[in-house]
Design a protein around this nucleic acid. Structure first.
Lengths: 219, 219
DNA sequence: CATCCGGGTTAATGGGCGTTAACCACATCC
DNA sequence: GGATGTGGTTAACGCCCATTAACCCGGATG
């Protein structure tokens, strides 16, 4: 127990978590059996119970885990405090994009299977999510002081939907690669946030805000 | 059977579909039992089999239905052809927002439970979805000729994620009401699409693209 | 009046699945 | 070199649940 404790690679436990995440994301929590999860890591069926109290416990650990990591990442980037509020917002966006692109299954689970948790775990996850959202809301309102808080919060939720959309994409290579995708999403998110500010700035001419940007090109 | 055929309101069948949609969206396809669906419409358990071949058939009808209505709506708005490509894009966005806000459960199901369908139905739904996406891609590229097709397609997917984010929102009234929400989402979507164009227009200075907004486009 | 038949009912069937029980092998420690 | 504990195994239990069977009732049909 003294030296060989850090056994080279990831523990069996984490291996199970990764496969479970993939399967849950693919077929839903209820859609995948405990035997399949076992098979995915080379052991079969009830062997999983040597590592987890039950199927629910796996999902709980996955969801709490990603919620905590998202929040921690967000707090870190805010604490680092870029040169400007805009820089902080860009850092938040990039951080979230990294999560969305690298941990697709978890991002999917994160808003799909939350209700399958036991009350206590669900409350914890929701609380973490709420804190994460508020982090963003504060930064967004700092960058774009116009809109009301509820408007800003709704915008943040919507942009999360935008950033988290990557997992749902068609399999074939009809889409950009990872780095181009990250850059594109970054731009889309900034554009969306910018719009909420522009909209608030202009009194009422909502229609004009659309064409104002690129309209001249067609004409 | 001659006169009283259109019996005032919605048929039992449609009643079942609506409740099933709500329950599936809330707890997942596998998470809701056939007895619960029956209970939700006042009959119990296997009585549903007088109206549907099985649980799968309900889901299939729901998903094919919404996919068809989305596509039909999109085609209609394009056929009507607004005064400009921009107007058509705005119409598409508004139409989609109406769906997202009025048929939340269906929008949720639409990208959550697709894999629970039998092969044939799944193929059909995917085909309808693909056609709908291509509709948008064409219009977006007309409005913003800069970006590559794959870039435009990814942007459309992302904006769908944005527009479809409404169902996942916190219950309490911490968010804007329906009309304000629609307006906000409209602005966010336009802002996102605008960004993909701006980004492509400017060579590399990505950071500036946020604040530059409308100014740079003419030049 | 007898007959259908649409739309229900409850009971039975059968399979899938999460979990537990009982048992086992190997490495490590003393 | 026997005790111990960790990480497996397979078999069994029990529940849940979709589907089917068998039966029923009320109204339109003729």
């Amino acid at each position: 127990m003294s030296d060989a404790q850090a056994p080279a690679q990831i523990s069996r436990r984490e291996q199970i978590l990764r496969e479970a995440a993939r399967l849950f994301a693919e077929r839903g929590f209820h859609g995948v059996g405990v035997d399949e999860i076992g098979a995915a890591v080379g052991i079969s069926g009830p062997g999983l119970y040597r590592h987890f109290a039950g199927k629910d416990a796996m999902l709980a650990e996955l969801l709490v885990g990603i919620s905590e990591r998202l929040l921690a990442g967000g707090r870190m980037r805010i604490a680092e405090g870029g040169e400007s509020p805009e820089a902080v917002l860009r850092a938040l966006i990039d951080g979230h994009i990294d999560f969305a692109l690298d941990d697709r299954p978890l991002i999917t689970l994160h808003d799909r299977e939350l209700d399958r948790l036991r009350e206590a775990d669900r409350k914890r996850v929701r609380q973490l999510q709420r804190q994460y959202v508020e982090l963003w809301v504060d930064v967004v309102r700092e960058v774009h002081p116009g809109p009301s808080e509820s408007r800003a919060r709704a915008a943040v939720h919507a942009v999360f939907g935008l950033l988290n959309s990557t997992p749902h994409l068609g399999r074939p290579g009809a889409l950009p690669g990872r780095t181009e995708m990250a850059e594109l999403l970054h731009g889309l998110a900034l554009g969306a946030f910018g719009a909420v500010a522009r909209e608030a700035a202009e009194g009422e001419s909502m229609a004009a805000s659309a064409s104002a940007s690129a309209a001249a090109s067609g004409a």
